[in-house]
Design a binder for these strands. Structure first.
Length: 218
DNA sequence: CTTAGAATAT
DNA sequence: AATATTCTAA
């Protein structure tokens, strides 16, 4: 498999979690080659980078500006995982290929879901409520799917125990997925049935310099 | 055409 | 197991 690419002209490989340094290196090489020519096509360069980053990765060209690619790319490559006052507001980190649902993120997710209520807790709205830049609807959807699976599992387990016999295991918290009305406390709800987190304090001003309005809807 | 949700795939 | 991607039906 690897050979195939080499014979096709690839000169180097990057392993999945691509780091900034590696990319800088690549850029240098690209420039050395091209520097002799009169025109350096930045678009082309960006394209190359895009290809070097494996397909499912985020490509560092958010906006169609054909400026001097280098600087911009370097900027874009800086980790943009921003966290302000314990609240994640941006998940973009080009070193990572997959999103990691940290507890913070998960918490925010849970909060969003709870504050929306069972009926309205659909990916799009969750996304809006969470207000995390660069988080996609599909990512939320995927997470939601898993979350619901967990929920079902725990409720089933509890029901079984309930009907059967013997002592109960306080591992998880009972919950009615259907008949449950959620408390719309906007600011202090913790403890989800998933029980994998009990962070109970998020309150501080948010928005620092990360407020750029990217994926918001009014 | 957009999206939620299930089914797969990595 | 966790996330992503694809498929299907509203």
């Amino acid at each position: 498999m690897v050979m195939k690419y080499i014979t096709n002209g690839a000169s180097d490989f990057l392993i999945k979690p691509v780091r900034i340094e590696e990319l800088k290196n690549i850029w240098q090489h690209v420039f050395r080659k091209k520097i002799g020519e009169e025109q350096i096509k930045n678009n082309n360069a960006q394209h190359i980078i895009g290809q070097l980053l494996s397909p499912p990765n985020i490509v560092p060209s958010p906006c169609p500006s054909r400026t001097t690619g280098m600087a911009e790319a370097a900027m874009a490559l800086k980790s943009e995982v921003r966290e302000t006052s314990g609240t994640v507001t941006d998940i973009r980190d080009l070193r990572k290929s997959r999103l990691s649902w940290t507890m913070q993120l998960h918490c925010q997710f849970i909060r969003a879901v709870n504050s929306l209520g069972s009926e309205k807790a659909v990916p799009k709205k969750i996304l809006e409520v969470m207000n995390v830049k660069h988080l996609t609807r599909q990512q939320v959807a995927s997470h939601l799917q898993k979350y619901r699976l967990h929920q079902r599992k725990s409720t089933q387990t509890l029901c079984k125990d309930d009907a059967a016999s013997s002592s109960s295991h306080p591992t998880h918290e009972p919950n009615d997925p259907k008949t449950q009305l959620f408390n719309h406390s906007s600011n202090s709800v913790y403890l989800d049935e998933d029980g994998c987190m009990e962070i109970t304090d998020y309150s501080l001003p948010m928005d620092d310099l990360s407020s750029g309005s990217d994926c918001m809807l009014g």
